[in-house]
Design a protein around this nucleic acid. Structure first.
Length: 849
DNA sequence: GAGTCGACTTGCGGCTAAGAAC
DNA sequence: GTTCTTAGCCGCAAGTCGACTC
């Protein structure tokens, strides 16, 4: 693509900023705008004292619950990774009818009155103990309950609605698009577009030592403009509050961060070595982007135009199959196969060391599809007489060969691949060069469904250009079909969607596989930001929502009652909505699709959950609930069989329709984001006491872990976990032995005696008492570190922290916390996350979720 | 209002490069 | 320099949810 060359100018513009150390820009215009777009719509009093109250989501581990879910139980193929959950949240029964004094208390505190809580298996290191602490530990916000935790708010303050109305999520503001020249009408026009290209941060992160990335300011989409207008007052306040900031933050206020006119160019000036630098993807920083100003509505908002011009080069296809000629054995004899037949046999052979081939369903589906390819009269008449070992071994040898290549060879291969794929890796969206996410077409293979998927083992056939629909700007050149003699299925020019290409899923023709922009793109970033804004908005409504559902626990209308209980479970346990599923999908459930057998009421008020959720991950939990909820569940179960729907009156559509009546745009999944983010925010602010960066990172990990527990994000215990633990134990024991020796020697030295001989009988060098003391201190520190590592390793062996970090935790919480506590953001976010969350980097240090 | 389609987000695991430990 | 371990990237499966149709 000619894009690279065109980038140079852009980067030249960027140079000054690029060269300068990046600092927190707490009051730059963009920062301010970012803030305004998100938090300034609150009534002023609610801006205070946020940190004071523990959200119940944290306080209930989560929501006061243990989340001892297991992987792999029931029908899951995965090994159970957590044993029986034991945490039982104590509840004092239905809280007194929402009296104000009680409102300010975390749910967990109220629920736990007078009863001990049992921790979940997650909660070693005292982690879970903290969230379960009673509210008496927790200073209370006196002037606002905006800061109140999840469960402590059951009423929306009268001004909340007003405050939030300004935070409109969807724009009504239909400003005309920025005038754009006809950029894509011709090759010439395309060049024009390219000359305008601004490389985004997408692939760029702050260089080491620079705490934050300066990045694209998400443009003034109408919605954000509206929000800003509505919150001018708050803006003034934000400025005023600057005086309250620690000097360390104020001095970081960049002089260059004055508001720039919207026409300001991307400033990315290369130094003299700029050409070289232009290839260093980690240094590409874009200060502004004017493209998104052209959007009529916020991207990702599900309505309206998402882009004006779109150029890309299509997709990369996997290489054609190269037959290897290795024969499988049928009844002990080698069999000739055509390349097509061999290709599919090889797909099976390479899976011989997986659990899939042990599953009858997998084998049955594979055999059905392969048999069709073999034909009726083929020598091979049954799968069980086939021996794929020769192909498996060939494959292992190939892998080995690849592995044993020299570093140079590997590097050359990688570069070659990169060279071939480079042009497909980028799209130009409204003049901005953006990374494409999955530009490679999925290669053929055998379908590996998760859990007990009825279609596992089916042949996922090769995708051809004739399967692929391309979406591209009307005036942009249609990507050349990379396979000679073939052509795309269709060309669309749909600017209301963000996909660049799609094809029908060969396993389920009703479904599609899309090619989207990468997570670091502005479109995705904007959509991400809106997601978190919506979750923050829920904070203002949660009180009223809880009031409503609590009231409806005893409703005579069965639908209302079921909606109330379902909403309660979604809020309290962070369950997923639970859409209906077809028979040809794995048998998993969410809240609305829970079966009677998935929830067992244990009097007086405990509910035991046990079901397979998304990805067939087992959710096991037992929790004390309010008595009316308990009774309602008993009622929903009565007269039904184990496999019947617990909530037979509702589905996700009804539930979400109801939620929308309570808050604009509210759906079930927003609760997950809300609970996750508010838990992080609260825990970070409560538990960060000081100490060095390492200690602060531990606090972050703890909070992150708590969120992962809330969301039931699990991972399989690594195969080598036990071995690693044994090794650690051995090392610790060894060090303890060394320690004993050192102590003995020290005693002897102090008495003027020589050190004892070492275990092999050799003489030890004599050391002074000071040296021995120093060594003892070093060894003690080593042992302590290893003990800590051991604990952490054991503690996190089944908890996946990444998923929540990527999808549920508002990055602004993390960025602001890092700024407040002088933790380099790179310690928390890796390169990808820095790029993905570039929109959050300008956040004010005082930001609270 | 149920069913379906379409577009998007969420999620885990495999692979591999990088870094740590030896 | 080699082996072990970990983090991060990537692939792709599996969710959610809005819009549309009947």
């Amino acid at each position: 693509m000619s894009v690279e060359a065109c980038d140079k100018q852009t980067q030249m513009d960027d140079m000054d900023e690029d060269e300068a150390p990046l600092v927190f820009k707490r009051s730059s215009s963009s920062a301010r705008q970012s803030q305004l777009g998100s938090e300034t719509n609150k009534p002023a009093p609610q801006q205070h004292g946020r940190q004071l109250v523990r959200p119940a989501s944290a306080a209930r581990a989560p929501n006061g619950l243990s989340t001892n879910a297991e992987k792999g139980g029931l029908k899951s193929v995965k090994e159970p990774i957590r044993k029986e959950k034991t945490l039982v949240e104590r509840t004092s029964g239905l809280r007194k009818e929402l009296d104000d004094s009680d409102d300010d208390r975390p749910l967990s505190a109220r629920l736990s009155a007078g009863a001990p809580k049992v921790n979940s298996n997650h909660g070693t290191n005292g982690l879970n103990a903290s969230p379960l602490k009673q509210e008496s530990d927790v200073p209370k916000s006196e002037d606002s309950d905006d800061e109140l935790p999840l469960s402590s708010k059951f009423q929306v303050k009268s001004n909340s609605g007003v405050s939030t109305s300004g935070r409109a999520l969807k724009s009504e503001d239909k400003k005309p698009l920025l005038t754009k020249s006809d950029q894509n009408g011709s090759v010439l026009a395309e060049k024009k577009v390219l000359s305008n290209v601004k490389k985004r941060l997408s692939d760029g992160v702050a260089p080491a030592g620079h705490s934050f990335v300066k990045k694209v300011k998400l443009a003034d989409t109408p919605s954000s403009t509206k929000i800003k207008e509505a919150s001018a007052k708050a803006e003034v306040k934000a400025e005023d509050e600057d005086d309250d900031l620690p000097i360390s933050h104020r001095v970081k206020k960049p002089v260059t961060s004055e508001k720039k006119p919207s026409s300001s160019k991307i400033v990315s000036k290369p130094s003299s070595s700029s050409v070289k630098k232009s290839n260093q993807v980690t240094k590409k920083i874009v200060k502004d982007n004017n493209y998104s100003k052209s959007l009529k509505v916020p991207p990702g908002s599900g309505e309206g135009q998402k882009w004006t011009t779109l150029t890309h080069n299509g997709v990369v296809f996997p290489p054609p199959y190269k037959p290897h000629g290795v024969k499988l054995l049928y009844k002990g004899k080698p069999v000739d196969l055509t390349p097509n037949q061999e290709e599919v046999a090889t797909m099976y052979a390479v899976m011989l060391d997986t659990d899939y081939v042990k599953k009858p369903q997998f084998n049955e589906n594979f055999w059905t599809d392969w048999k069709n390819l073999l034909g009726k009269n083929h020598t091979i008449q049954s799968l069980e007489h086939c021996d794929f070992t020769p192909i498996y071994e060939w494959h292992q040898r190939e892998k080995e060969k690849k592995k044993s290549m020299s570093t140079e060879e590997k590097k050359a291969l990688k570069e070659d691949k990169l060279k071939q794929e480079e042009k497909y890796m980028w799209a130009i969206v409204d003049g901005v060069k953006e990374k494409v996410g999955n530009f490679r077409v999925e290669p053929p293979g055998l379908f590996r469904g998760r859990g007990e998927h009825p279609k596992m083992g089916k042949l996922k056939r090769r995708i051809h250009p004739s399967d692929i629909v391309i979406n591209i700007g009307k005036d942009a050149p249609v990507p050349e079909c990379p396979i000679a003699g073939e052509r795309w299925k269709d060309i669309r020019h749909d600017n209301t969607v963000t996909w660049l290409a799609y094809w029908n899923d060969p396993i389920n023709q009703k479904e599609f596989k899309y090619v989207f922009l990468a997570a670091s793109s502005t479109l995705k970033g904007q959509s991400d930001k809106e997601k978190y804004e919506k979750a923050r908005l829920l904070k203002d409504y949660i009180h009223g929502i809880r009031t409503t559902y609590t009231k409806n626990f005893v409703s005579k209308d069965p639908t209302k009652k079921q909606i109330a209980v379902a909403t309660y479970l979604i809020d309290k346990l962070a369950l997923r909505a639970g859409n209906e599923k077809d028979d040809d999908e794995a048998d998993t459930v969410g809240c609305c699709t829970l079966k009677v057998e998935n929830v067992e009421p244990v009097p007086p008020n405990i509910l035991k959950f046990d079901f397979l959720g998304k990805d067939s991950i087992r959710y096991q939990n037992q929790v004390e609930v309010e008595i009316p909820v308990f009774k309602a569940i008993q009622q929903f179960r009565s007269g039904k069989k184990g496999g019947d729907d617990l909530f037979d009156e509702i589905d996700t559509s009804k539930l979400n329709a109801h939620l929308k009546e309570l808050m604009p745009g509210l759906t079930a999944k927003v609760f997950r984001t809300y609970n996750a983010s508010i838990t992080l925010d609260d825990m970070l602010n409560k538990e960060t006491k000081g100490g060095d960066v390492a200690e602060k990172i531990v606090v972050y990990q703890h909070a992150n872990k708590q969120v992962a527990i809330i969301c039931n994000h699990q991972r399989t215990v690594s195969k080598s976990h036990d071995a690693q633990m044994s090794r650690l134990n051995e090392k610790i024991e060894e060090l303890k032995g060394v320690m004993e020796e050192l102590k003995t020697d020290l005693t002897r030295v102090k008495k003027g005696k020589p050190p004892l001989k070492s275990s092999d009988g050799s003489r030890k060098r004599s050391m002074s008492a000071e040296t021995l003391e120093r060594k003892i201190a070093q060894t003690t520190a080593k042992i302590e570190k290893m003990e800590r590592d051991k604990e952490t390793k054991e503690d996190l062996k089944t908890v996946a922290l990444g998923t929540s970090r990527i999808n549920y935790l508002d990055p602004r919480i993390t960025v602001a916390w890092c700024k407040r506590h002088e933790v380099p953001i790179e310690k928390i976010f890796n390169k990808s996350l820095l790029a993905k969350f570039s929109w959050a980097m300008d956040v004010d240090p005082s930001f609270r979720f």
